[in-house]
Simulated assay, not measured.
Amino acid sequence: MTKEECIEALSKYANIKLLITSTVWNELEKENKEIFEAYA
């Protein structure tokens, strides 16, 4: 899943606001660059 797909799925199925997921994802990317580079 891409970042956008994940954000949309969490919004649709878990009722988590887009801004919250996007903010958390961005912070995770900052803290775990190696994981997200490998994921991409």
Rank of each mutant, 00 (worst) to 15 (best):
residue 7 I to T: 03
residue 13 Y to E: 09
residue 27 E to S: 08
residue 37 E to R: 08
residue 40 A to E: 14
residue 39 Y to M: 00
residue 31 E to D: 11
residue 36 F to W: 07
residue 35 I to Y: 05
residue 22 S to C: 03
residue 8 E to D: 12
residue 18 L to S: 15
residue 33 K to G: 06
residue 40 A to M: 11
residue 13 Y to V: 07
residue 5 E to F: 00
residue 34 E to A: 11
residue 34 E to V: 06
residue 17 K to V: 02
residue 33 K to Q: 01
residue 12 K to P: 08
residue 18 L to P: 07
residue 38 A to D: 15
residue 19 L to Y: 02
residue 15 N to Q: 13
residue 21 T to H: 06
residue 11 S to F: 01
residue 10 L to T: 02
residue 12 K to Y: 12
residue 24 V to T: 11
residue 36 F to E: 05
residue 18 L to C: 14
residue 31 E to G: 12
residue 18 L to T: 11
residue 15 N to W: 14
residue 26 N to M: 13
residue 29 E to Y: 06
residue 33 K to A: 07
residue 40 A to C: 14
residue 11 S to Q: 08
residue 6 C to Q: 12
residue 35 I to Q: 05
residue 20 I to T: 14
residue 7 I to L: 10
residue 22 S to Q: 12
residue 28 L to N: 08
residue 8 E to Q: 15
residue 15 N to I: 13
residue 14 A to S: 04
residue 21 T to L: 04
residue 16 I to M: 13
residue 10 L to K: 00
residue 9 A to D: 15
residue 39 Y to C: 01
residue 12 K to R: 10
residue 5 E to T: 02
residue 21 T to A: 01
residue 12 K to N: 08
residue 23 T to I: 05
residue 28 L to T: 09
residue 29 E to T: 11
residue 24 V to N: 07
residue 28 L to W: 07
residue 35 I to N: 02
residue 17 K to H: 13
residue 11 S to I: 09
residue 12 K to V: 10
residue 31 E to C: 08
residue 3 K to C: 03
residue 16 I to T: 13
residue 32 N to S: 10
residue 1 M to A: 12
residue 25 W to D: 04
residue 20 I to W: 10
residue 1 M to F: 14
residue 15 N to D: 15
residue 11 S to D: 12
residue 35 I to V: 06
residue 14 A to T: 04
residue 25 W to E: 06
residue 5 E to W: 01
residue 23 T to M: 07
residue 10 L to V: 01
residue 25 W to H: 01
residue 32 N to V: 06
residue 19 L to N: 00
residue 19 L to H: 09
residue 14 A to K: 05
residue 14 A to W: 03
residue 36 F to N: 06
residue 19 L to S: 04
residue 30 K to Q: 02
residue 3 K to E: 05
residue 31 E to W: 11
residue 17 K to T: 07
residue 15 N to E: 15
residue 2 T to W: 00
residue 9 A to Y: 09
residue 26 N to A: 14
residue 5 E to A: 03
residue 35 I to S: 05
residue 19 L to R: 02
residue 24 V to K: 12
residue 20 I to V: 12
residue 6 C to F: 15
residue 6 C to W: 09
